[in-house]
Computed example of a mutant assay.
Amino acid sequence: MRVVIFCHSALSDWNHGNAHFLRGVATELAARGHEVRLLEPDGGWSLSNLLADAGPEALAGFHAAYPRLAPERYRLDALDLDQALDGAGLVLVHEWSDPALVRQVGAHRRRGGRYALLFHDTHHRAVTDPGAMAAFDLDGYDAVLAFGEVIRELYLRRGWARRAFTWHEAADTRVFRPLPGVPGEGDLVWIGNWGDEERTAELHEFLLGPVRALGLRARVHGVRYPEAARRALSEAGVAYRGYLPNFEAPRAFAAHRVTVHVPRRPYVLALPGIPTIRPFEALACGIPLVSAPWRDAEGLFRPGEDFLVARDGAEMARHLRAVLGDPALAAGLAARGLETVRARHTCAHRVDELCAILSALGHPVPGVGGCGPSAPETPVLSGTCPS
């Protein structure tokens, strides 16, 4: 099957977490023998910032980490949809796309396109900026893929889409996996962007305060840290290391003993059941995780077993002290978190779910058995799916 994915960027993950999951899904589809075409706008802000921050060598790192992917850049005013979508069986348009592109692809489908057309939403704007989401014209789309049940329900309740399915993000376990033998470099690592004031107070309470109180050797990676944030990190004794390519995160996890999850405020207050992709990736790397509060409304994990939950900064400090002081506790958390991800939350699981969704929409995936497991070391013929 030929799959076409329109996204803001697959080349760049600079302040662009949507790239993480899309890279994993595209790789999994390609490993199953599907022809995957990734299209992103030329001059997109994430790629422009990546090149300014990390230089062109960042793209060499991407190609080494994702050898099956070859993203193409397009200009919307010169995009030939007849050519781009020729022979497609599935077209997926991510919500961080230009509304004009979303509308044009829907119109192309209405003119006789025989492919399945899905809109993929992995952001909190449906709650925090509903006007922006209502501007998307989804006429011609078969359904919405929403990264949480609360988002799926919003699309249906507000009449933005006729059909919608919950399709959570997950870990790309080809990239995110334990790396034994990496030399230790510190106690705690946190990977994330400052957050446009969406979690400033939470970072002070659940990250900086506990690190300072316990005197931990801690490191932070991320972008868009204002001067005040960098000063706060320094005062807490936290080393700020700037941008880290997402595909290098497993090595950073392997070099540290624990990590934390600090969700942005919109997810805690209005989007229960959506943890974002960071916990999936950390747990897939086999590192103990302690999380600030979020409600696992959809039963994705086993809170208290796969990771510990801290209700406030004082409890975060107690949990971190316990994990760092008890090797058996740390090993048990790491093992159970890894077990849950591998059993339920890999990109392979999500591609299986995608195949089931396509069948429900009347677009069964070609190949014996519909969509079987990938064979990463044994290529299959394009247009088939291993049994």
Results as ranks from 00 to 15, higher is better:
Met1Pro: 06
Asp142Pro: 03
Arg217His: 14
Ala54Phe: 07
Glu235Leu: 06
Leu69Ser: 09
Arg251Val: 00
Arg219Glu: 15
Leu207Glu: 03
Glu298Val: 06
Ala171Leu: 09
Arg177Ala: 13
Thr200Trp: 14
Leu22Glu: 11
Ala335Ile: 00
Glu185His: 10
Leu283His: 07
Tyr66Ser: 01
Val262Tyr: 09
Asp187Cys: 03
Pro226Trp: 08
Tyr243His: 13
Arg158Ala: 12
Leu214Gln: 10
Ala146Cys: 12
Ala54Cys: 11
Pro279Glu: 08
Ile191Trp: 11
Ala348Val: 00
Leu145Glu: 07
His204Phe: 09
Ala135Thr: 05
Pro250His: 11
Gly131Thr: 05
Ala310Arg: 01
Gly195Glu: 11
Leu188Asp: 04
Ala314Pro: 01
Arg174Asp: 15
Phe6Trp: 10
Ala107Lys: 10
Glu235Tyr: 05
Arg68Gly: 01
Asp172Cys: 07
Leu207Tyr: 09
Leu145Pro: 02
Ala19Asp: 10
Gly195Phe: 07
Pro386Tyr: 06
Gly186Thr: 03
Tyr243Lys: 00
Leu216Gln: 04
Gly242Asn: 08
Glu339His: 13
Glu72Asn: 08
Leu358Gly: 02
Val102Ser: 01
Ala146Lys: 05
Gly159Cys: 12
Pro275Met: 05
Gly383Trp: 03
Val268Leu: 10
Ala218Phe: 08
Ala52Cys: 05
Asp137Cys: 05
Phe301Val: 00
Leu117Arg: 01
Ala322Thr: 07
Glu205Ala: 10
Val91Ile: 11
Ala60Thr: 14
Ala31Thr: 04
Ala70Thr: 14
Ser234Ala: 15
Thr173Gly: 05
Gly192Ser: 09
Ser48Met: 11
Glu95Lys: 06
Leu22Met: 14
His349Trp: 10
Leu207Met: 13
Leu50Ala: 06
Leu156Lys: 12
Ile287Ser: 02
Gly325Pro: 06
Pro327Thr: 03
Cys355Leu: 06
Pro288Val: 01
Ala116Trp: 01
Phe136Arg: 04
Ala348Trp: 04
Leu203Lys: 11
Ser234Glu: 15
Glu339Pro: 00
Tyr115Gln: 02
Glu281Pro: 00
Asp137Asn: 13
Val341Gly: 04
Leu118Ala: 06
Leu208Ser: 04
Arg219Val: 13
Pro67Asp: 13
Ala335Gly: 13
Thr346Trp: 08
Arg264Glu: 15
Leu333Lys: 01
Arg241Tyr: 11
Ala356Gly: 13
Phe62Thr: 03
Trp160His: 08
Ala70Lys: 14
Arg336Ser: 14
Ala164Val: 03
